[in-house]
Design a protein around this nucleic acid. Structure first.
Lengths: 327, 327
DNA sequence: AATGACGGTGAAAACGATTACATTCCTGTG
DNA sequence: CACAGGAATGTAATCGTTTTCACCGTCATT
């Protein structure tokens, strides 16, 4: 593998000049630039990242932590990456599987100076851990975030969106509305809050039996449905905090002869690609994925360039999309 | 940020000794090891990756190229990563969006010595490009691969699996079997070959009008269905080369009042998570994702440790899963 | 008591880039 | 023609590691 020295030798100049040609911005005579560029081409030279970043202590890379690879994230991170690229950064995806250890091991990349900052699309860190991290490195949380952390945040107004979704169910005349929720942290808790407020402001009681907690996985969707049926209840209307959960739940009900919207209504959250393709198509709260991905990077970028930049909370507008799962 | 020198000073030893403690394998007196470890802890020291890899010219990282973030890949790369970790490697995901330029720009990471090898789960490179790459770096292709490349390959027997899938359709008495295919390269072409062989060996003609080409995206599934309907044809039986295509197609037919399996049958390919959750549940050829992810790394690992390792083609067993989309 | 072996440690040279500073080369002006 | 001064280039230090080689004790062997 060729290095800068060989290029310099071949072009008959010093390494400093080669460096200047590579990085631009300095004055180099046109003729020597040509020589150097020719040498670079002939030797198929490509600068060594370690050497460079050792010297400059910059990497031009950011991390994006993903709990899983779902198409929901595909457009979101594509947007992040596009924006990053436009600002001279490249992006590395870290697949955490919602595993705290995995997350921490990826964060080593930050400590090892392999990356300059990180965007979380979900995290298992505590607020305290997040804060120590954010004190030292640029951090932004997107979509999902832990409360009480002083990092940048990009999200929709989960509470308001959920209020709206549940209110739509109530407007259709539903009285018994179940919640397919999750551990009461982060957005799950906000979405539950919206659910509760909607019921309250319609004068409906919150029946604790109608709240089904579980984790965020696909299988858990089926489990919630099964639990409901095993409790001897049939669904009338359901507000589910994520499409990921809704689809398998729908499937489980279907296997028990219960169809949507014939037998019950469902409104869900995320606006994933699957939501418009499934049969029946999901009514769901759509998150502005492109904008979120973009804003997440921009917020990070501010901090990247200014250690004193004060982290912001950015709320983006959601959109309630009513499709076939509501009567 | 602390460096090895500060640790050495604090522990009252030389940097060489600190390095020996960090990397293990060398003889260090127990008492000094303790001192060094204490110093490391107190300074919250973490070795600088650039310094290390500059010196060793090893990175301990591999790249995984993904065309998109679909849950199909989630378990596959989780398996790759687990195996990689067990062998002391970590994994970086590159989201190529099936874009050749994006792919190439990620390959810079190889040239820049940011990573030691790469696994492609789909590529836009030509066989020639792939070969030049593979001559210089460890490369493995998994699931999807370009023909005539001398890289490691891990896949199912696409032709045989497709033959089996289409034969199942024929066994159900279907005579007019459409193909939802794609540009005739790589696995798409093998799957088409299996489709043709199945028809041929059943004595059925191949009707070119019944072959619908398009790309690999979700929207393209709807397009194929629409094209079929606009041509005034109704589906009788369909073999689709990917679940990604099948689901939107099913949806499109559904919107035109055509239901599966009532009005037609469909067998698809991949065995994605969605295939078992959709309504109706897809009949599909399941690929052994875990095994594929694991084997892909292992094959890469061989080459990583031995530049003269001869690349292998590894075929893993598929499984035809018949569910609700077949009568 | 001299010798050798060996466990433990340190000094210093890489690795490949960037960059402050020094130096040389031009060119235009008095 | 000498010289100032900017433009272009070179020299060498530096970033944080690993690793070779040399060195120093200590201890067993003769």
């Amino acid at each position: 593998m060729s290095n800068i020295k060989e290029v310099a030798a071949r072009a008959g100049v010093s390494v400093a000049t080669v460096s200047r040609v590579i990085n631009g911005g300095s004055v180099v005579r046109e003729s020597t630039r040509k020589k150097v560029e020719a040498a670079i081409r002939e030797l198929r030279y490509s600068p060594n990242f370690s050497g460079r970043s050792l010297r400059t202590s910059k990497t031009g890379k950011i991390l994006v932590m993903l709990p899983s690879l779902k198409s929901f994230y595909s457009t979101l991170v594509a947007s992040t990456e596009k924006t990053a690229k436009a600002h001279g950064y490249s992006m590395l995806i870290c697949h955490t599987k919602s595993d705290k250890e995995a997350e921490k091991s990826y964060l080593e990349l930050l400590k090892n100076k392999m990356a300059d900052g990180v965007i979380f699309l979900s995290t298992r860190l505590t607020a305290a851990e997040m804060n120590t991290l954010a004190r030292e490195y640029p951090v932004v949380q997107c979509c999902e975030y832990v409360r009480g952390s002083n990092t940048g945040v990009v999200s929709v107004d989960d509470e308001a969106a959920s209020f709206e979704a549940v209110t739509a169910l109530i407007a259709r005349g539903h009285k018994r509305i179940s919640l397919f929720g999750a551990e009461r942290v982060g957005t799950a808790s906000d979405r539950e809050a919206g659910y509760r407020r909607a019921l309250a402001s319609a004068g409906l009681p919150v029946d604790r039996e109608e709240i089904y907690y579980d984790n965020h996985s696909a299988e858990s969707g089926r489990r919630r449905a099964r639990r409901m049926l095993e409790a001897g209840r049939k669904p009338e209307a359901i507000f589910s905090i994520s499409d990921i959960i809704s689809l398998p739940a729908l499937r489980e009900f279907y296997e028990h002869g219960l169809l949507c919207p014939r037998d019950f209504s469902l409104v869900s959250f995320d606006g994933s690609e699957e939501s418009s393709v499934s049969i029946p198509a999901l009514s769901t709260v759509e998150q502005p994925r492109e904008a979120m991905g973009r804003e997440a990077f921009l917020e990070l970028y501010n901090r990247l360039n200014d250690p004193d930049y004060e982290a912001r909370i950015i709320r983006l507008p959601h959109r309630l999309v009513l499709r076939e799962t509501i009567r």
